[in-house]
Amino acid sequence: MEGFDFEKIEKWWVARVKDFFIGKPFKIKMDLSKSVRTLVRGVLSQAERRQKDAGGTAYVGAVMQHLVGAKLELFLDEALEHNGFSVADAPTKRNGDFQIENVVIHVTQTPTESLIQKCVDNLSSNLSPLIVTSHKGAISAENLADAENIADRIDVLEIEQFIATNILEISRFARESRKVTVEQLVEKYNAIIAAHETDPSLSLIIG
């Protein structure tokens, strides 16, 4: 048909479909035949796809930070101080994303030199830094820490392992209890999102 640019029309509809899925909550698949790490990996994979489609919006980092926060609250059975993902440490005078006793926890998808410098600052204040990151991020963090000669003074853990270990422990390694623990984790995560983020699509639903 004359007067219609079908390529533009197609691009418009593709963009609308992407917007629709970007606005949906992430889904955690409750498949007890799969490992707990697989459940966590599934959520992070969704965040990675959405981040790619959304032109760089940091969905992965936000999900990681709040999953860690929810897991800590669940494990410690106490409320912690939380911040929105976009809230920087410096203006709030925070030592990191979370602090429990003398351990400062930094959650990041991609460790940087500035993060390692924060760890140096933590150490100078007699605090123990812990970096929770992705598999690739763990390798990067260790290399950066080695360059600063602090590799033997900080802990670096992959987020899938960090969360999965506690879920198994809280569940006392029982399969049915694991389901309840994951549900509790999701409940705490969603409460954090509702209180500290403006984007409800960061929330989780169990499928």
Results as ranks from 00 to 15, higher is better:
A47K: 11
A47M: 08
R49C: 02
R49L: 06
Q51I: 05
K52Y: 05
K52H: 04
G55Q: 03
G56I: 04
G56V: 06
A58W: 06
V63L: 11
M64F: 06
M64H: 12
Q65I: 04
H66G: 03
L67P: 12
V68D: 09
V68M: 13
A70S: 05
A70W: 01
K71C: 11
L72D: 10
L72Y: 11
E73I: 03
E73T: 08
F75S: 14
L76Q: 06
L76I: 05
L76A: 10
D77F: 12
H82D: 04
N83Q: 13
N83C: 04
N83A: 11
S86K: 10
V87A: 07
A88H: 12
A88Q: 12
A90V: 10
A90T: 08
K93P: 00
K93D: 07
G96T: 07
D97H: 10
F98S: 06
F98L: 09
Q99R: 13
I100C: 04
E101W: 15
H106V: 02
Q109K: 15
Q109V: 11
T112A: 03
T112C: 02
T112L: 02
E113M: 00
E113R: 06
E113Y: 00
S114R: 13
L115T: 02
I116G: 00
Q117C: 04
K118G: 13
D121L: 11
D121N: 15
D121K: 15
N122P: 02
S124V: 03
S125H: 12
L127Q: 09
L127H: 09
S128Y: 10
P129H: 10
L130G: 03
I131K: 01
V132K: 01
T133W: 04
S134D: 05
S134W: 08
K136A: 10
G137P: 01
A138P: 02
I139C: 03
S140T: 14
S140M: 14
A141S: 07
E142M: 15
E142I: 08
E142N: 15
L144C: 12
A145G: 13
D146S: 14
I150H: 06
A151S: 14
R153V: 00
R153K: 15
V156M: 07
V156C: 06
L157M: 10
L157D: 08
L157V: 08
Q161F: 14
Q161V: 12
F162Y: 15
A164H: 03
A164S: 12
T165D: 09
